[in-house]
Amino acid sequence: MDPKTGNALTKALTVLEAAVAGPGPRRFADICADAGVPKASVHRILSTLVELGFVAAEGGGSYRAGIRMFALAEEVKAAGAGGVGEVLTRLSAEVRQTVHFALRSGDHAVYVQKVEGDRPYRMASRVGMRLPLHSTAIGKCVLAHLPPDELAAVLAAAGLPARTPATLTSSGLLAAELAGIRERGYAVDDEENETAIRCLGAPVFDRAGHVAGGVSVSTVAPLLSREELLSFVPALRAAASAVTNLLH
C-alpha cells in the first residue's frame, strides 16, 4: 500500500519505521524521504510519537527510537525466544552460519531476528535493517509468491536498482528467477545485494497462506562455495516450515 494514499494508521506505522530504521538519530528529511509521506503529516505524526514515547527528539531536528519502543522490542524478543528464536538458533548451530528472519513491509523486508554463526567474522546486518526485495534471498522469496498484480505494483514502486554487478536489473531475468524459486522452494542471493556475501533463503507464510517473509542463511562468498551453501537447503526449508507453523 502506498503510504501517501493509505489510511492514518498506515502512515503512522510507516513514519515510525523510518524514524527508528538506523543505528543512530535520523534527520527529519531522511524520515520523510524513506516514509514517502508529506512533510506536514510526518511532522504531526512524529509529534504524537514523541509524546507517546515511541520516538525521542534529538537536537538539530533529528529523531531516534524512544524508551517505549525499546521496551516493546524487548517484549517481542522475549516472546520469540522460545519460538522463532529457538528455531533460528538450532538452524544456525546446524549450519554454523549466520541466520536471519525477515518480514515483508511494503516494497521491502525488515530483519526482525538474527543469530550469528559460529565463525570468527560477523555480518554487518542488524535487526531493523531494511532489505530490497529484488536483490536478496528472502526478498526474492517474497516476490516469487506475490499475486501478479501485487508483484507488478511492488516492482513499479521500488524498481530494480543495481546493488552490485550481479543484481538482476532486467524484469525478464527476474521473472525467470522468481518462477524457479516457486518451483524449487528456495532462493539464492549470489552477491546480488552485497559483494562477497552469499545467502540462501526460504519463504515463510502466515495463517492465511500469504507470504509473510522468510528465513535465510548468510555467509562470506570466498569462504563458502555456492554448492556448499546449497547443501543447507533441507535444513533451511525445515526451519522455514517450522516458523510458518509458529505464525499459524
Rank of each mutant, 00 (worst) to 15 (best):
V42F: 07
R44S: 13
I45E: 13
I45P: 06
S47K: 13
G53M: 09
V55I: 14
V55A: 08
V55P: 06
A57C: 00
E58K: 09
G60Y: 08
G61R: 12
M69Y: 09
A73V: 00
E74Y: 00
K77M: 00
A78N: 04
A78L: 04
G80C: 02
G82L: 05
T89W: 05
E94L: 12
V95Y: 01
R96P: 00
V99L: 05
F101S: 02
F101K: 01
A102Y: 10
S105K: 08
G106A: 11
G106Y: 14
H108T: 07
A109Y: 14
Y111R: 14
Y111G: 09
Y111H: 15
V112R: 15
V115W: 13
G117L: 06
D118T: 05
R119D: 01
P120Y: 00
P120H: 02
R122N: 02
R122P: 00
M123K: 03
G128P: 12
R130N: 13
R130G: 04
P132S: 15
S135E: 13
T136P: 01
T136N: 02
G139N: 06
G139D: 11
V142N: 08
V142E: 10
L143M: 05
L143A: 04
H145P: 00
H145G: 01
H145A: 02
L146H: 03
E150L: 07
A153L: 05
V154Y: 08
V154D: 09
A158S: 15
R163A: 05
T164R: 12
L168T: 05
S170K: 12
S171F: 08
A175M: 03
A176N: 10
L178Q: 09
G180I: 08
I181K: 12
R182H: 04
R182W: 00
